[in-house]
Design a protein around this nucleic acid. Structure first.
Lengths: 266, 266
DNA sequence: AAAATAGTGTCTATGAGACACTATAGT
DNA sequence: ACTATAGTGTCTCATAGACACTATTTT
């Protein structure tokens, strides 16, 4: 095992063990936060990527991220990336998984606490049009597995077919995010985070279908959503659609289900 | 924000951002792994705790843990704690959540990647009897919330009613572990990790009931488990039970569903 | 009027809870 | 024989898929 050399000779002793791992006497890793900013646009699941202009992994595409400040909570770091990098606010952010293989970053030992964020397509698209100077892309995700099997996924280029070269272990991070999102969708009202304030049930269904990569039954979907009580009709109808307009609904937030962590910092 | 002082004056630039966070120029946190070793014994969910003999949090009870070696993968560190601290092998270990509030450890900034592990009661009880020198306890967990609501939980003393004083944010870690375990149980064959190789369906049901903190329907439970194909009869019967003995079953591992992380390292 | 999608009613298949019943080892 | 639990068969209820049908707006 990798840690044997730093292990004391009395491995059964808690005190000796902790003492041997005295934080000030051993090298510490860097800790970063990476963000999987996801949306659904044109019926496809997409994620925000950034082309790396510098080494390491120069020219490859990576998730937005940054190192965690020594006095900064993890969720504050995640919010900082979301705000600073993308100018977004009020989006759903949740901790995802921590990636810590030695060698995942060639510079030094970097442990990255991946987060995922859900943003309505229009909001995320604004970021791209506002920041044309930066090499940003809203890349469609191709998921090579069914259900919640898991594993790395591909991000596709603007053509929509050729996969992009991803930096570090970011294909795995993306895959973990998709897996989590699929799991959430089944029992958690997380689809609304990807929609504007008012939406049609058809739009909500499209979100679900894009995330799950499978068609859903229209009738059963409507019944299930309406029965859940998560949604309430606004009385208004969508307009300009060339056919019968659907009613607009809004999400009834039960008690602000956006869990924005906030363990000690604003 | 906590990180503003280390933020460059051009926050829109990815390159400047990363450069400003150059890992070698800023203080790094310590990274630890803490383990929630859980079992079900006498129809109760229990966790392994350790009484801290030294500062900080001297005299309080804490989860077994340790710092992560600079070249050590996170899952290897978790295995090391499980093996070294408890002498256990072949148990189910899974990454849980990363806790990183500044101030959660009074010594220094410590970010802890919590893991949870599932161990059959007999196996975990052996550890306690083998290591009487160490202040270990297998504490019943009292969960003050329903379903998968989440939140901190209490660990109870040997009397089974008075709560133990827990160190750091370990009540939250325990709560997160219970929440995860409850979620898993519904759709993942994780209950078998808490049982010996052969078990009766009644024993499996007891596991489920203890984890979920609610009674389950006997008939529906049997039907569901048998229909799942996760289990196969051994043909043998339990013995010495003062009534009709139940048939013993064993878990049919489909393709070794124990996911033992292993991201790049053996 | 035609096109296109919104929205509703009904039938069916499936899975869980409820309940009653039979089966069997130990005392 | 009695007790306690194992194990089975059947009914009912809730939910999802399938399908047919009606409703309404734009062109």
């Amino acid at each position: 095992m990798a840690a044997n050399r730093s292990k004391p000779s009395t491995p059964d002793s808690e005190q000796a063990f902790l003492a041997a791992y005295d934080a000030s006497r051993f090298p510490r890793p860097s800790v970063a936060v990476d963000l999987v900013l996801m949306t659904v646009e044109e019926g496809r699941l997409k994620a925000l990527l950034l082309r790396r202009a510098e080494h390491p992994a120069k020219g490859r595409w990576s998730l937005p991220g940054g190192f965690v400040g020594i006095d900064e909570p993890l969720d504050a770091a995640a919010d900082r990336i979301v705000h600073g990098k993308a100018g977004l606010s009020g989006v759903f952010v949740e901790q995802l998984y921590t990636f810590g293989s030695p060698g995942r970053d060639p510079r030094t030992r970097v442990i990255s606490v991946a987060h995922f964020a859900l943003v309505p397509a229009a909001k995320l698209r604004e970021v791209l049009t506002a920041r044309t100077a930066e090499p940003l892309a809203l890349a469609p995700i191709r998921v090579p597995w069914e259900g919640e099997e898991g594993g790395p996924v591909e991000a596709l280029g603007p053509g929509g077919d050729e996969p992009l070269a991803l930096a570090f272990d970011h294909a795995e991070m993306l895959g973990t995010a998709v897996k989590r999102l699929r799991g959430r969708l089944s029992y958690s009202p997380v689809g609304y985070e990807l929609l504007p304030g008012e939406f049609t049930l058809r739009a909500l269904q499209t979100i679900h279908e894009a995330v799950l990569s499978r068609k859903l039954n229209k009738d059963a979907f409507r019944r299930r959503i309406l029965a859940s009580g998560e949604v309430e009709p606004t009385g208004r109808l969508e307009g300009d659609v060339g056919h019968r307009p659907a009613e607009l609904y809004r999400y009834r937030r039960p008690q602000r289900p956006h869990r924005r962590g906030g363990r000690g910092t604003s």
